[in-house]
Simulated assay, not measured.
Amino acid sequence: GQVFLNLVVNAAQAIREGDAEHNEIRIDTRLDGARAVIEISDTGAGIPPEIVGRIFDAFFTTKAIGVGTGLGLAICHRIVTDMAGELTVRSELGKGTTFSVALPVAETDHPGVAARLLPTAPVVDARIGRILVVDDETLVGTSVKRILKSHDVHVLSNAKEALARCVAGEAYDLILCDLMMPDMTGMELHRELMRVGPRMAGRMIFMTGGAFTPEAREFLITRDHIEKPFNSADLRRLVQRHLTGG
């Protein structure tokens, strides 16, 4: 889900360009009693010990201005904690960092089975739509496009570019937009579209990993949104409901 996507992206960003033979991102899994443990390690620069205790704080980031919002690890920590799990970090300057996710193994009626997959009704794409996906995490946009592959999906990683396209006259049946992004947030994009193209603003669905500010929470009260991480069936149903006016 979103947790592992964010951790892998962070690992990739921690590794400097060049020296490809020695650069590595490694994912290890194991059972530790009643918990499943997933570790994501990189050979990046490492995290200074004086700030390692703050990396799960909202809006704290070591990245350059405009590269990140400081919300990614805070969201990961909240998601894992809400699942009765634990997210920890080990890091050594000059050698790299390891994030460890420990989650309780699901209980089932059958020993040796970690989880039971329940059958779900297939989602039929009754109407094909032209959909714009706006998310600063490229992998998220790619995943959404794959889930909605029966539609005409366009992916952008910048809300300002999305605004420019709408102002230029490009029309979409639906806009799936991340809530928190650098440069321009989903809320700011909605506000600008309300000013220059209110019809397109009314076609927005927001994707969010957590509304951390009072403004964001109030904004989402009256607007359609889907919480990350979401599954493909839920997303496709939501899209079809909007496309068919249901």
Rank of each mutant, 00 (worst) to 15 (best):
S150Q: 14
L5E: 10
I40R: 01
R191Q: 10
G112R: 13
G141P: 11
A115S: 09
D224G: 11
N23W: 00
S157E: 15
V133A: 10
L132M: 14
D28V: 12
P111R: 12
S150V: 03
L193W: 02
V9H: 03
G44Y: 04
T120P: 00
T213D: 05
T120H: 13
E215K: 12
A74G: 04
I221L: 14
A171F: 05
M194H: 03
A36Q: 09
E39S: 15
V144S: 06
F230M: 11
R217D: 02
S143Y: 08
A114F: 11
L93I: 04
L117D: 09
C76F: 02
D125N: 13
A164H: 05
A159P: 01
E227Y: 03
N6T: 14
G129W: 07
V89C: 15
A159N: 05
L118A: 10
S232P: 05
A216R: 08
G129R: 03
H242S: 11
A164E: 15
T88I: 08
A58Y: 14
D82S: 14
A45G: 13
P119E: 12
I131E: 12
G210F: 11
D152N: 12
A159M: 03
H151S: 08
L176A: 10
K160W: 04
I47Q: 00
D32T: 08
G94F: 00
I147K: 08
T138D: 14
M180C: 05
A74P: 10
L235S: 11
V124Q: 14
V9R: 06
A64H: 04
S232R: 14
T69R: 12
F230R: 01
A84Q: 13
R26V: 15
H110N: 09
E137A: 12
M181D: 03
I221S: 12
S41T: 15
G46F: 05
E170K: 04
N6D: 15
T120Y: 11
R16V: 00
F99L: 06
G186P: 07
I175F: 10
G68L: 06
N158R: 12
T244W: 01
P111Q: 10
C76D: 15
V123G: 07
L179Q: 00
R26E: 15
A106F: 03
R127D: 09
V134M: 10
E218I: 10
K160S: 08
V9K: 06
L73A: 07
P119V: 04
V67F: 05
